[in-house]
Simulated scan of single mutants.
Amino acid sequence: MSDEIENPKVLDAARWIAERHNDEGGRIIPAVRSRFSLTAGEACQARALADRFRQAGRAGA
């Protein structure tokens, strides 16, 4: 994955996921796709970015 996010909706979705710690009961990808109007690939990118946010100990860039 690129370090540079081109779609601001992906970044917003990643922050949303990181803040909620996947409280969607394993359905985070469909929830993110619906909430942020993302493709499946973009939603997966947001999930991976959220994991990086968590590992870094913060919920946003």
Rank of each mutant, 00 (worst) to 15 (best):
R52L: 09
R58I: 15
A14M: 11
E24G: 01
A48F: 04
A13V: 05
R58F: 09
F53C: 04
R27E: 01
E24T: 08
E4D: 14
P8N: 00
E42Q: 15
G60R: 08
L49I: 05
G60Q: 09
M1L: 07
R47Q: 09
A59E: 00
E6V: 03
R54Q: 07
G26I: 03
R15Y: 03
A50S: 12
R52A: 06
R33Y: 07
V10A: 00
D3M: 10
H21A: 15
A61D: 12
F36Y: 03
A31P: 02
Q45H: 07
V10L: 10
N7G: 10
A50L: 07
E19T: 13
N22Q: 11
D51N: 15
H21E: 11
D23Q: 07
T39A: 10
R54H: 02
E6K: 10
G25N: 04
I17K: 05
R54E: 09
G25E: 10
S2M: 05
E4Q: 10
E4W: 04
D51H: 13
C44T: 04
A46S: 10
E42V: 02
D3G: 01
S2L: 11
Q45Y: 08
E19R: 12
T39I: 07
C44Q: 13
L11H: 14
R58T: 15
P30K: 12
N22G: 09
L38T: 07
R35Q: 05
D51A: 14
N22H: 11
C44I: 01
D12A: 12
G25R: 08
L38A: 00
A59D: 06
R47I: 00
G57H: 07
L38N: 00
A18L: 04
E19F: 06
G26V: 14
G26R: 06
R35D: 02
G26F: 09
D3I: 03
G60C: 13
S34W: 02
A18C: 14
M1W: 08
I17F: 02
Q45S: 03
E4R: 04
A48W: 00
A59I: 05
Q55W: 11
A14T: 01
L11D: 08
E19W: 02
P30F: 07
A14S: 14
A13F: 00
N7K: 02
E4K: 09
P30Q: 09
A18I: 12
R33M: 13
R52I: 06
A13K: 09
N22R: 15
I5P: 00
A18M: 06
P30T: 14
F36C: 05
